[in-house]
Write a protein that binds this DNA or RNA. Sequence first.
RNA 1: GGGCGGAUAGCUCAGGUGGGAGAGCGCAGCCCUUACAAGGCUGAGGUCACAGGUUCGAUCCCUGUUCCGCCUACCA
Length: 955
Amino acid sequence: MTFSALSRDNNFERDRGDKVRILEKSYNPRGIEERWYEYWVSKDYFKPDPASKGSVFSIVIPPPNITGSLHMGHALNAVLQDILTRWKRMSGYKVLWLPGTDHAGIATQNVVEKQLATEDPEFRVAMYEVQAKNVTEKELPSERLYRHKLGREAFIERVWKWKAEYGGKIIHQLKRLGASCDWSREKFTLDEGLSRAVREVFVRLYEEGLIYRDNRLINWCPRCHTALSDLEVEHEEIEGKLIYIKYPLTPPVPPLSKGGYITVATTRPETMLGDTAVAVHPDDSRYKDFIGKTVDLPLTKRKIPIISDNAVDPSFGTGAVKVTPAHDFNDEAVAKRQSPALEFITVIGKDGLMTEDAGSRYAGMGRYDCRRLVLKDLKEKGLIEKEQRYTHTIGHCYRCKTVIEPLLTLQWYVDVRPLAKEAIKVVKEGRIRLIPRSWENTYFAWMGNIRDWCISRQIWWGHRIPAWYCQKMQNAKCKMQNGVIVSRVIPTICPYCGSEELIQDEDVLDTWFSSALWPFSTLGWPDKTVDLETFYPTTVLVTGFDIIFFWVARMIMIGLKFMGDVPFRDVYIHALVRDIKGQKMSKSKGNVVDPLTMMDRYGTDAFRFTLAAFAAQGRDIKFSEERVEGYRHFVNKLWNAARFIIMNSELQAPSSKPNFSLLTSHFSLPSRWIISRLAATADDINRALDEYRFNDAACDIYQFVWHEFCDWYIEMAKSDTRNPELKNSVIGCLLYTLDASLRLLHPFMPYVTEEIWQKIKSWEAGVRGQELEIKESIMVSHYPRSLLRDYQAEEDMSYIIDAVTGIRTIRGELNISPSFELNVSIRTYSRKAEEILRENVQYLKRLANASEIKIGMEVDKPEGSATCIKSSMEIYVLLKGVLNIEAEIDRLKKVEAEVEGSISFLNKKLLDEDFLLRAPTGVVEKEKARYEELIRKKERIMESIKKLKEAGGEK
RNA sequence: GGGCGGAUAGCUCAGGUGGGAGAGCGCAGCCCUUACAAGGCUGAGGUCACAGGUUCGAUCCCUGUUCCGCCUACCA
């Protein structure tokens, strides 16, 4: 790219003298961001060469769902990863940030089903009626119907089409954020390579007996029409009713009216139709005689036994529980403990409708309609004893929020306990670090009592389970033992009977199954690729805590099992982004802040910096737009600092070629100071990023750029640029510090830093008479690190800062206009201070707007002057005739009172023998020195007050 | 029921190993000083939730209490 491209945007212009100027007074990100991003990509900066030298730093992105649209969580996640990768890349590492997306089985299928539904005229009519006649949405035909109308193959094709059209949205949004991912390695969980990895893992786990199939209760979503794992169920507190139902004992025992019944309490009366027992505690004296008897289950013709089980809590309800093995996890366990085991009667089907087994009166009804009818029927028979308000938790589908129904079905499971054992070990041994560490407890707790993972889903979009069944099994012609062929490739004939009639399992795998392989499947596994060799294990995983169990835990288990090594060394767990009130952002609450809006409004850099500054460990982020605005000001400040430096540099004719070499220049004290402060800042930032303290790093650079570089150094440099002796070194130092600041800032604010950096490089080239063209890039320059401190300069500079702020304090507190030139006397406490101030008096004059400054250890307080006392000097501002003596005395008295307070505090401390005896000598010495200083300060103040009073008295 | 985290300036939050608490925004005063008014300078504002304990000394470590979040669990 050459200069002609640059001049098109409105921030830069080239004038006739071949010079580039920044014209705009404020930074306008429009146009700039896209342009640099394209440039970086075109230069392959995001793409590591596995063969190159350097230590490896690798991250795999938590793959966003293809249905996703960038939200705050993604933005935070991506920005933190980008800060790390850009920082490491600039620090000389071989960096891979591997991007990709997740096929998101249920979510994607739901989206496409909805789309299909709205395309169907019948559905539209129904929808219209819902809106026009205000009938409930439940009367809409199920969206699932439309997928079945289409058929499996056509539907899958349709989803791929949808993906091609909309699936790349979030990737574009990530690019907009500036994410420096290697797009040439982008992966999708349903890619052929990754699918092969999925089959390989499934087959191996099956062969080792860690994957098996079983018929038991699972969480079923009647809306999504699939099984869910325990994790995919969200528990929510609901205010419901606890209903007490009388179950009549089977005659000939006493009739109902004479107490011949047993009362059970339930929140789900409709499930009574599937009851196969009533359970009581074996030691419950109230029910001792009931055990072994039967009751006539109301509304049915069945007799069910009264049994005993230790799990029954005698203090809850009536102490007697109805047992519905096919619709309640507790009851399932009870049923299986009995011998013989209790019967399972499924009365609610896969659509949430009552089955034939519920009886002809109820069959085909919705479960909630049925609940109402059952209650009505029971009431009519006089079997409702009472109703009680009761809050309890109910499971909901995490995708569609429908109430979960426990259902007895045949599903595939992973026996995760053996894997979990290893996964616990690696964290205990520190081979994987969770950061912040407090998450380790949560991790251990969950891993410790982990339950088998249900991995089959009754949907179409996903990895088909690599299992086949011989058709002849069904007519018993095939003798295959467990009835299933699990294979890496599609089998053509049954190995047992030779039949070619094989059908594949209809189910697909849980989306999280393929996610669990992400750190190595994306690098080419099961092949032994160079990428896998180079980048596995990855260095760090950056993720939110909401998917620790879904994803992180499973990656650790599977990674260890198949790679024999951890998938990552560090797991940095960041917070959730909430709204300003601390509430979760959600569409229904209407409190969602859109990252794209933020970027449009304030620029990507300001937005990124805000996220980094907010990312304190262990605390949720309450996002505030005001903060973004604040950091936009910071971007602008940086922009203007650059503008000033370039404009000042241009004051010199290009032919004079300023000397930028730091080593050969004569240095002013402020120059030495700012370079030392830069070194300190670079150190702090590197250390903070090393420990994932993003907010500290952001804060450090902000503080340095604004308050040290701009407020002090640039202000002081203003006079130096006109001084022929200092001009070259000061301009060199300004440019050097700006350049280093840009590099320090680049991982946080990639765009504006590149824009300015390019501008400087072009300008420098122009000065040297070279063609103005785009230099390489700031993103492949070196990150500042291990620079030398100049402690002497920092100490010396403190005298100047003390003097200037002292004068300003007097000016400010006495409300003296900044334009009023002051006459100042400074009495220093040391020769050193005197010397430094004398040498640098021009800075004092400029920064404090003083025309005359008297400096020395022997300087006296002039009559009619205001006083400010610092630890190394006393400052007097002459205000003869102007000074309000009363006000000045008041001001000094206030200071004195403060000093007095500190003195008495320290006095008490220093009289305390225990303190003198037990505190470390260093601390005691420090306190003593402080005490003496305060005493001296107090004396000076009192002297000043005395003089003022004398002067006032003369009047 | 179990577990985790939070309570610091009017607001939002920082405060690696205990030694009289900081920032940003907001507020008040003075300023358009030729980079930036999206700016500069100055200032006000805090019994660090409450009660005990350890210590010479506690915002920080320990115990308890109160009020908020969150995660997790098969009491019908």
